[in-house]
């Protein structure tokens, strides 16, 4: 997978997100202080926000091009998104949440079935529960599983563990690695936790006030 952002410009409240970037690693981290534009960057990749300039290309398919007025809607991009608050649908049970984006027609192999994904994420016993009754760690795994079942070509994770304590974070990291290894879904992982970067990411992009100011391995960027 490769995701390319070319001459992107997205005005924000205090500054503009202006970036050129290539994402081609299994797990790319986006690191930066609060308010640097990290969530806005994920929003524009997923199609939830529309830049005023630039282009976005996923593999060989252009999914946004301001000059050509091309803007593929989020539902057609096949880019999964787990936001910071997880956005599990509170009126649906776990099973219905998981099946919300399930598209059997898009599935290329048998890994992307409810039973297998639930097993890998260790949420099989939770399927008939209401999502509001789940613990923080259980909710995270349900959110990951829901995104996986939509068979995305790329998965965006926006500080999904920011509300968890360090013990729970450590327990969840293997589940994220399973998304990479078992399902072969590339991840873009936003965080401002250096420990998560080191544990998860192959490459890290540093973002500050809407601009990429550095990239490299976690060790290089954090040095």
């Amino acid at each position: 997978m490769s995701l390319q952002l070319r001459n992107i410009r997205l005005p924000l409240a205090d500054f503009a997100l202006e970036t050129d970037a290539m994402f081609d690693q299994p797990i790319t981290g986006i690191f930066g202080p609060s308010g640097a534009g990290k969530t806005s960057l994920l929003d524009l990749i997923s199609g939830l926000r529309r830049p005023v300039a630039g282009a976005v290309q996923l593999d060989d398919k252009v999914i946004f091009d301001a000059a050509d007025r091309l803007n593929l809607p989020p539902r057609l991009r096949r880019i999964g998104y787990v936001p910071q608050d997880l956005a599990l649908f509170p009126h649906l049970k776990v099973r219905a949440n998981l099946l919300y984006g399930y598209r059997p027609a898009l599935i290329e192999n048998e890994l992307f079935t409810l039973g297998h994904v639930a097993e890998v994420m260790e949420i099989t016993p939770l399927l008939e529960r209401n999502v509001t009754t789940l613990s923080g760690g259980e909710q995270q795994r349900v959110a990951f599983a829901r995104a996986i079942l939509s068979a995305p070509r790329l998965l965006l994770l926006d500080e999904p563990m920011s509300s968890l304590d360090s013990r729970l974070k450590k327990r969840l990291i293997p589940f994220l690695l399973r998304i990479r290894d078992e399902f072969r879904i590339p991840l873009i992982y936003v965080t401002h936790d250096a420990g998560e970067l080191v544990a998860l990411c192959d490459e890290v992009l540093m973002l500050e006030r809407g601009r990429l100011i550095g990239r490299g391995s976690p060790a290089e960027v954090l040095a």
Partner: peptide
């Protein structure tokens, strides 16, 4: 209703009508 629920439904492949019928309206 948090617009984030609707946004995430869109990324999960839902059409605008499905977002309305299954997320906005029930909530």
């Amino acid at each position: 209703v948090s617009s984030r629920f609707e946004d995430i439904a869109r990324t999960l492949g839902a059409s605008e009508w499905r977002v309305f019928a299954t997320i906005s309206l029930p909530l």
